[in-house]
Design a protein around this nucleic acid. Sequence first.
DNA 1: TGCAGCCGAATGAACATTCAATAGACAGAA
DNA 2: TTCTGTCTATTGAATGTTCATTCGGCTGCA
Lengths: 190, 190
Amino acid sequence: MEPIADKKKAIFESTLELVKEKGFHGTPMSLVAKRAGVAAGTIYHYFESKEELIQELYQYIKRQVIEVVQREDATDKPYRQCFFNLWYGLYHYYRHNANVLMFFEQFVTSPYNIYKDELGKDEFFRLLFGFFERGIAEGHLKQVSPKIMGTLAHSNVIATVKIQASGRLDLQEGDLEEIPRILWDGMRKQ
Amino acid sequence: MEPIADKKKAIFESTLELVKEKGFHGTPMSLVAKRAGVAAGTIYHYFESKEELIQELYQYIKRQVIEVVQREDATDKPYRQCFFNLWYGLYHYYRHNANVLMFFEQFVTSPYNIYKDELGKDEFFRLLFGFFERGIAEGHLKQVSPKIMGTLAHSNVIATVKIQASGRLDLQEGDLEEIPRILWDGMRKQ
DNA sequence: TGCAGCCGAATGAACATTCAATAGACAGAA
DNA sequence: TTCTGTCTATTGAATGTTCATTCGGCTGCA
């Protein structure tokens, strides 16, 4: 993983913030440039087009999320423990990187997302699904498609962060334990 | 509820399709007009601006979803039954109106959404939360904030439809029973 | 005759992208 | 050390395109 040139990173961060604030539309290259502290032309030194900037940014971000999953999956703790750690791992990552989350969400439901039909090939989801597959194989979870459980679990984390981030509703200490608990109780073998 | 002029409806439908296909950006008024079979100017006979078109469309759609909740909530069936009916009601509505779902999702995480901080005042969510409040009061559900459970339940339905709609993964007969089951098992009083 | 509904070419603004010009970094030659 | 040439990185004004919105005029109905 080569280190990313300073300006390139600044452009990424600027894009991330702006997309969160204003969406893909409403994020002109001129503003991206200004907020990154570079000239408009500089962006085109690093990226061929807006399209490519967005695509590369998506890959850049995804690598970070993948690391979270890998960190929590590959331990020898009891499965149940891993389950909660994974949930909290993703939760905290998204919580502290709210603009990543928003970018992700907007990206996935946008025409920029050209991977729509290759869910199985996406490394993030491969890892995630693998984790649930293991849970079923080891007899901890219900006999439900791991792809389904993985997707539901992920959407559960995201919904939680969104509740939190929007500030529409403040989660109490206890709630943060109850939510993954609900998920676990629903998915575990009864 | 006054009947909506034919052309107005055509404009709504056209916008819905295009936003699903191309996102808010990538949906120029000229295309909206063409697909609706009207002239560009006609849109401005009905709506003051693109902004207002999107906002009105959001309201128009929301009323339909609200009806689904009302239909399933206000029966005298046992609570557990209502729970599943509500899940399936929303599921089927979104399933048969995939472009509504995509529009919703994009709208919510976009700058068009000016209601971000008034979740409690949104009628759809008021109804939804009310349903879970009842479940707790009647002793069917865990003692967790109804707002949280409502939000999680809704995101669960949406995740399911998105799995289905994307065609990335085909849900079996049985899966469609397992998914709300997971939710119920997680939220019900143990 | 008047009017609402509708049309689509014309307008101007916003935007992505280009490019000619400048600055700096570095290597080799004198 | 200094000079020279050749890179790459950077700039921001200029360009051409796309788009939201406007408006003068047409149509058919009362």
